[in-house]
Write a protein that binds this DNA or RNA. Structure first.
Length: 338
DNA sequence: GGTAGACCTGGACGC
DNA sequence: GCGTCCAGGTCTACC
């Protein structure tokens, strides 16, 4: 018999808004159903994989903020498995960030107060976040989508994302030939081994007593992790002060912010622009980018992964004009959302 | 410390 | 359908 249980989210939580807030919600094994407003994925739990489906209120309807999340599993889960699943779902949906955290962000950047945006989707585990970040480097979005589908199909139990143990035992040739990860093959295996041996310590990385700079230096020393990937993993850890600047930042700087000049100049000015947002810098930066993507492809809660993949190639993005919105620095009046 | 080139895949384009 | 070019971040060798 299937299991069903509920999770109480923060009082301002809206699943369709807060889950559809970062590209990883479109990457396997995650599946967002825009019609039902439901997030499904396989979790590799103690007794084996289980397909979980998360909804808020009536399927397909608009739930009011804070409505309990309903989780349905395709098999009976033990009490321990329900606890395990709840913990992973909480991490994925950032249920640890209550309304006071989001309000704090809106005080610094009031542009997002009306929509309520503030939380960013991530993976159920740090390991999955790190590997997904590696698959997003040096490729365009469709390749990232395909690499994650193949990793789950080839190496995940029952379609789940592969565990560190399984990936650490994989052959580089399998990763390259069947998962199409290219030169990332050995780096992914090496990263997985570091998780298995405990040399990557999530508790230390996530601890408020660990300085951002120390985390950044540590991450940058990992195989396959450079400055961009390290900064991205930091935001996935909930450390939002540093920006993962990449070619998308250049495009945003030029087309949306109107910055001219050489790449290094644009990068520096993008960094300077968001620095005043302090510990919320990445949120401000990201929701500007997200608004641009929504101007191109419609509201993110309507996106379908496979249809969307082709829309997010560099050539397509370059051809789209940015939404018009006055840029706002911290403390200034909020611009109305279009 | 800064720079150039290799790494690999898949999309775009020309024929 | 095939071949070529290009985009993308990290790593290594070299200056």
């Amino acid at each position: 018999m299937a299991s069903r249980f509920q999770i109480a989210p923060p009082s301002d939580y809206v699943l369709s808004r807060d889950a559809c807030s970062y590209g990883y919600f479109l990457l396997a094994p995650n599946h967002w159903d825009p019609d039902a407003r439901a997030l499904s994925r396989v979790l590799d739990l103690e007794a084996g994989p289980s397909v979980l489906r998360i909804t808020q209120g009536a399927e397909g309807g608009r739930a009011s903020p804070g409505t309990p999340l309903t989780v349905r599993a395709d098999r009976t889960l033990s009490r321990a498995e329900r606890t395990e699943a709840s913990g992973q779902i909480s991490r994925m949906l950032r249920l640890d960030e209550d309304h006071t955290v989001v309000r704090g962000f809106h005080r610094v950047d009031p542009r997002w107060r009306r929509s309520g945006r503030g939380r960013l989707f991530r993976s159920p585990t740090l390991f999955e976040d790190v590997i997904k970040t590696v698959t997003s480097c040096n490729v365009q979005w469709p390749s990232t989508v395909h690499m994650n589908i193949r990793l789950c199909d080839v190496l995940g139990r029952g379609g789940a994302f592969p565990t560190p143990k399984r990936l650490s035992r994989a052959r580089a040739s399998t990763l390259r030939a069947r998962c199409r990860v290219g030169y990332r093959d050995q780096r992914i295996i090496d990263l997985s081994r570091l998780f298995v041996t405990g040399e990557i310590d999530e508790a230390w990385l996530a601890s408020p007593s660990t300085a951002d700079d120390d985390v950044f230096v540590f991450l940058k020393g990992l195989p396959g992790i450079g400055p961009y990937a390290a900064a991205n993993i930091m935001q996935l850890l909930g450390r939002y002060a540093r920006l993962p600047l990449d070619t998308e930042s250049l495009r945003h700087g030029r087309t949306v912010m109107g910055i001219e000049g050489a790449d290094a100049t644009v990068m520096r000015r993008v960094h300077e622009h968001f620095a005043p947002f302090g510990s919320h810098a990445f949120r401000s930066y990201w929701f500007e980018l997200w608004e641009f993507y929504e101007a191109k492809a419609g509201p993110s809660e309507t996106w379908r992964a496979r249809e969307l993949a082709s829309a997010f190639t560099a050539s397509n993005l370059k051809s789209v004009k940015a939404p018009k919105r006055p840029r706002t620095a911290p403390g200034r009046a909020a611009a109305p959302r279009s």
